[in-house]
């Protein structure tokens, strides 16, 4: 008599498949944009807030930058608030996006500079025209960012993979805003 033991394949278990699908859900819906913005109806238009975009870095200098965008539909300009993390305090004058051969520049005004663990958190605000923001995120290749401070400048870059993902989300949000204008 041969004792046949049925081998259970753990990966084939229905519960495992359901659980895996649940975990994969965010990836399957990567292009969903509703998690990436908020909108609020105001007397003078709709106020859109595009949530924080992360990924800009300067690896050798160990600095990073993230930003969010606020846009009121009755205006032409969008507010880009950014957080710059560095181990040195810098008085930032302006910021620019470099996409292709074009550079889009904007003066930055300081919101605050605070200590963040061993780094300094610089929070600044800049204004860009909405059409420039649209143009920047239409770029297929990653747009670089350059910070200008105290007669110096620093370039921050984003990986192609992150740019591809984030710019696609931004393009869809911008398309939606334009459709509602």
């Amino acid at each position: 008599m041969v004792n046949k033991k049925i081998k259970r394949v753990p990966f084939g278990h229905p519960l495992f498949i359901v659980f895996s699908l649940f975990l994969l859900q965010p990836n399957l819906q990567a292009q969903k944009i509703d998690k990436h913005y908020t909108s609020s109806i105001q007397e003078n238009g709709t106020l859109y807030f595009i949530k924080t975009i992360e990924g800009y870095k300067n690896a050798p200098k160990k600095t990073s930058l993230s930003f969010d965008i606020t846009y009121l539909s009755s205006t032409d300009s969008a507010i880009l608030n950014f957080t710059y993390l560095s181990n040195q305090i810098s008085q930032i004058d302006s910021i620019s996006f470099i996409h292709g051969n074009t550079s889009t520049n904007s003066v930055s005004s300081k919101l605050f500079i605070e200590a963040e663990k061993l780094n300094w958190e610089h929070r600044y605000s800049s204004k860009f025209s909405f059409s420039d923001i649209d143009l920047i995120f239409k770029s297929e290749s990653p747009a670089k960012m350059r910070l200008f401070y105290e007669n110096e400048s620093m370039e921050l870059v984003i990986s192609e993979k992150t740019w591809s993902k984030k710019s696609e989300i931004l393009r869809r949000i911008i398309s939606m805003i334009k459709a509602n204008n």
């Binding site: 908020t38 609020s40 105001q42 007397e43 003078n44 106020l47 807030f49 949530k51 924080t52 969010d68 606020t70 009121l72 507010i79």
Partner: peptide, 9 residues
């Protein structure tokens, strides 16, 4: 307060 032009998170 009237209208909003900024959003903070």
């Amino acid at each position: 307060n009237a209208n909003s032009t900024k959003v903070g998170k």
